[in-house]
Nucleic acid binder design. Structure first.
Lengths: 348, 348
DNA sequence: GTGAAAGCGCTAACAG
DNA sequence: CTGTTAGCGCTTTCAC
């Protein structure tokens, strides 16, 4: 048995079917079902009963065509596999579902950088009413183009002066992690993050880096650019980065990875080089990934799904006419000290 | 500065604008732009140039209303955070994007079990052209209702006789893991999986359990029901389950967790009880999660994103009129032996 | 090869 | 309170 393209849908009831069955006009059905005023109690009652029996549901496309609203929003992410993004997605989806909105996911990974992004956006345009960009670098021109679509927009990570944004104090993240390491006595601190070569993310790693440098400066410790390596925010990337760091003429005694997943990779690399964590090298991550506790990873915790939920909520608010100030909505962060960070061993 | 609901979209070009600008009828524009026959070369050329200049794109809703096709499909998952699901999603999204389709995600977690599911499905109905159900238990009645919507459907995990399905040989998964443990000499093997109490997943854990029992039977080892504990497919769940297992009067010398995330939790629980892995207890997972290698976890690897991609492809195929036999599409699995499994220590 | 016109199913004035 | 009537923007016969 096979399925071909010809499978046909059972005819679904239209608003007219309901109108006829209920003995009213389609306009009344529309009003009754959407809870608009000026409908007699009894009429409303009867109409919704009939609608139920007929399993009627307004066709979303027809509705969108008539009202301009699709009751769905999009979320654009640089990649879909990755702990951080799935948490954001989960948070956003929950809010949408709750509000009766549908969530469309778009991955704008390699998709031809700049051009591709704007392209994707304008192509999703009349399909959704709003969009949240998650850690996607939006440049000046893009912003304008996006604004012109009329899509209610919210960004996560980067903040712009056209749209509300949500995220965490990324500078503080870098500072917090670095201060922790400095307090333990570390002076040579490696950083694994998103360097120039990582298209994904842009401002976030940059801000965290600033935090690192600020903390270093405050402590009067010179920053060493050779100790910064990109890790593409993945386990594999973190592993490679750590390998590079350990091969340095004078390797760091501590490493700050800008995400837990990269930290995991770093731990792996360390072990592969018979380098003991934390005796030989301390490691601090960011996120508080579910597995962080399993590996005893010291990390800067953030409430990721809350961020996703908040962003979605802000898009919906705008759609519902709530006044949303363009500004930054910051979620709290917190240092969680576990076993991968310790004071440096005195050199022999 | 604030954004209110009144932000207005720049007026987008309609097919009529293009028609006027190109000096042809809307019908011709429609034909030309969709590559239909019976359009003069020159006309087609001119029309598409004009369309480009006007940045024209057919309105998806209008198009859907006229053709019945929305060029988008849905994917229903029991939860969004969770490594497995994000991999599936990534695979599916890639295929959709490639084909110019949009992907809608729906989380049907608690959403009131049975009723909620069907409800969600019928409500997404005319919004999308097809849907893939990922590890969502579909019962007899549901299947009929879903089939009646006319949505092109594919399931991942469970297989039905109404729709094509994709997944892995779950019985073999259980067997493979168990045989490995048996060969090492283990006889008391605990199982952490989705027992009755876990609404999520249903057939998959059951099949893997069958595999375990089959392997046990083949080896002439009696299965001990008290060694099976649900772990809700999360790190936290795995941890709790392991705690329970270790408190048994006669604890297992090895544990098979039906997902790596649960295995991670088990490792954590073991460490918390000063129980050494693998000296005191061996652990085997399923998936080959990115972090599995970091924890040295022995696991049954599966190519999750391929499964997601395959499923999406099958939905699109049906939509494109390709004949898709209703049947099972199986992805290969493979035992990856690492450090968490070892022969049992001889009891003192 | 191209155009005119009739919908697709719903909402939104505008009358009554 | 309820019905009538235009569209929303596109596709699709059916003529020319």
């Amino acid at each position: 048995m096979t399925i071909t393209g010809s499978t046909s849908a059972r005819d679904r009831a239209t608003i007219e079917d309901v109108a006829v069955a209920a003995g009213v006009s389609v306009a009344t059905v529309s009003r009754a079902l959407r809870g608009l005023p000026n409908v007699a109690w009894s009429t409303r009652e009867r109409v919704s009963r009939v609608a139920d029996e007929l399993r009627y549901r307004a066709d979303p496309s027809a509705s969108r065509l008539a009202t301009g609203r699709s009751r769905s929003i999009a979320i654009a992410v640089p990649l879909l596999n990755g702990w951080y993004f799935s948490q954001v997605l989960a948070g956003a989806e929950a809010v949408c579902a709750e509000a009766g909105y549908v969530l469309v996911v778009m991955c704008v990974a390699d998709r031809a950088g700049r051009r591709g992004l704007v392209d994707a956006t304008t192509s999703i345009d009349r399909r959704v009413d709003g969009i949240v960009f998650v850690d996607i670098p939006l440049h000046g021109d893009d912003l304008g183009t996006i604004a012109q679509t009329g899509l209610r927009t919210v960004t996560i990570g980067q903040s712009t002066d056209l749209f509300p944004s949500v995220g965490i104090d990324d500078v503080a993240v870098g500072e917090l992690a670095t201060e922790h390491l400095l307090e333990l006595g570390h002076r040579r601190i490696g950083v694994i993050g998103g360097q120039a070569e990582d298209q994904i993310n842009f401002v976030v790693p940059q801000l965290r880096q600033q935090g690192v440098e600020r903390a270093l400066a405050t402590a009067g410790v010179a920053a060493d650019a050779s100790l910064q390596v990109g890790g593409s925010f993945s386990v594999a990337g973190g592993r490679e980065a750590m390998t590079v760091l350990m091969q340095a003429p004078e390797p760091p005694t501590a490493v700050f990875a800008m995400s837990d997943e990269m930290a995991f990779g770093a731990i792996l690399a360390a072990r592969e080089s018979a380098c003991h964590v934390p005796d030989d090298v301390s490691i601090v991550g960011v996120d508080d990934h579910d597995v962080a506790v399993v590996l005893g990873l010291t990390t800067v915790r953030q409430r990721v799904s809350e961020v996703g939920a908040r962003a979605a909520r802000l898009v919906l608010d705008q759609l519902e006419g709530v006044e949303v100030p363009i500004g930054r909505y910051e979620s709290p962060i917190e240092l969680v000290v576990r076993e991968t960070s310790r004071k440096p061993r005195r050199r022999p």
